[in-house]
C-alpha cells in the first residue's frame, strides 16, 4: 500500500484526535470514584461568630490578622494591587453597605475583620474547572494549591472578595517563614482555610486564639450546644450578603 504524504498527515491528525478523545473519556470515567471519596460526609459544619461589640472595644486592633498571616506565611506585598490577605479589616459601611441609611452614615461603625465565609453553597467551588477548590464534609472550603491552574474564575465568583491571587512570587515578601507551613508560588489563588492543620491537631484557628477580647468564637454550627450556636440563639446576628444564597458560616453579632 502506498502511503502519500497527505495520507500520513491525515492519519497523524486522526491519531491525535483519537488519543485526545481517549484521554478525555478515560479521565471522565476515572474521576467519578475519586470525587465521591474526597467529599466525605461529616456531621460537623465549622463556623465562626464575631462579636463586634467586643471587637470594637479593642480599637485599632490587628492581632487576629497578624497571627493568621504569620501562621500561614501570607506575604506582605507592597503593591496594593497584588495584595494577598486571608483576614483583614474593612469599614463597617463597606462590609454591610445596605445596613446604612443617610441618617446613620455618619455614625462611625469602625472596622471589622472579614475572611472567607466558608459558604454552605460556595460559588467559587461551583465554578472551579479543576476541583482545586472544594467544600469538605465539615463545611470548610479548601484550596489545593497543587492543582490550581490560576484561572481566577473563583475570584470572579466570590461575592465577598475573599480570594487573593499570587500575582508575584510571594517568598521575597515574607518577613519570616513559618517552616511548618508551605508558602505559595506565583500563579495560584489562596484564601483562609479555617486553620485546617490546627483543627486536625485539636487547636483553635490562629485568629480565634490571638483575639485579646475573645471576640471570635469558633465551633460546630450543627451542634446545638456549641458556643457558636448558643451565641446565635441569644444575640442578633447578621451574615454578609445573605440574599445571594451562598450561606456564609461567619456570623457577626451587632
Amino acid at each position: 500500500m502506498k502511503v502519500t504524504r497527505k495520507d500520513f498527515l491525515r492519519i497523524a491528525a486522526g491519531s491525535v484526535v483519537a488519543a485526545g478523545t481517549g484521554t478525555l473519556v478515560h479521565a471522565l470515567s476515572g474521576s467519578a470514584p475519586a470525587t465521591a471519596a474526597t467529599v466525605g460526609e461529616s456531621k460537623q459544619r465549622w463556623g465562626m461568630v464575631i462579636d463586634l461589640r467586643q471587637c470594637r472595644q479593642q480599637g485599632e486592633c490587628d492581632q487576629c490578622i497578624r497571627a493568621c498571616h504569620q501562621t500561614h506565611n501570607v506575604p506582605e506585598v507592597p503593591n496594593p494591587a497584588h495584595e494577598v490577605k486571608w483576614i483583614w479589616n474593612e469599614p463597617f459601611a463597606k462590609v454591610f453597605p445596605f445596613q446604612q441609611s443617610e441618617y446613620t452614615r455618619q455614625a462611625d461603625g469602625g472596622t471589622l475583620p472579614v475572611l472567607c465565609n466558608h459558604c454552605a453553597s460556595p460559588s467559587c467551588v461551583r465554578v472551579c474547572p479543576t476541583k482545586a477548590t472544594w467544600k469538605r464534609g465539615d463545611g470548610i472550603v479548601m484550596m489545593d494549591y497543587h492543582r490550581c491552574i490560576g484561572c481566577r474564575y473563583c475570584m470572579a465568583a466570590c461575592p465577598y472578595g475573599s480570594r487573593s491571587f499570587n500575582y508575584v512570587d510571594p517568598r521575597p515578601h515574607l518577613r519570616q517563614v513559618n517552616p511548618e507551613v508551605p508558602t505559595r508560588s506565583a500563579g495560584v489563588v489562596e484564601k483562609c482555610d479555617f486553620c485546617t492543620a490546627r483543627l486536625a491537631k485539636g487547636e483553635l484557628p490562629a485568629c480565634v486564639e490571638a483575639c485579646p477580647q475573645g471576640a471570635m468564637v469558633f465551633g460546630d454550627l450543627n451542634d446545638e450546644s456549641s458556643p457558636v450556636r448558643q451565641l446565635l440563639a441569644e444575640r442578633y446576628s447578621v451574615q454578609r450578603q445573605p440574599h445571594l444564597g451562598c450561606g456564609p458560616s461567619i456570623f457577626y453579632l451587632v
Binding site: A27, R147, G150, C151, Y153
Partner: peptide, 23 residues
C-alpha cells in the same frame, strides 16, 4: 496567556468538573 499556572492546563481534562462552566 491568562492562566497563572499554564503548565497545569491539562488539569481541566485530568479532573473534568461538570459543574464548572469553564469546562
Amino acid at each position: 496567556v491568562d492562566m497563572g499556572q499554564p503548565t497545569r492546563v491539562l488539569n481541566v481534562l485530568l479532573h473534568p468538573t461538570l459543574h464548572s462552566l469553564m469546562f
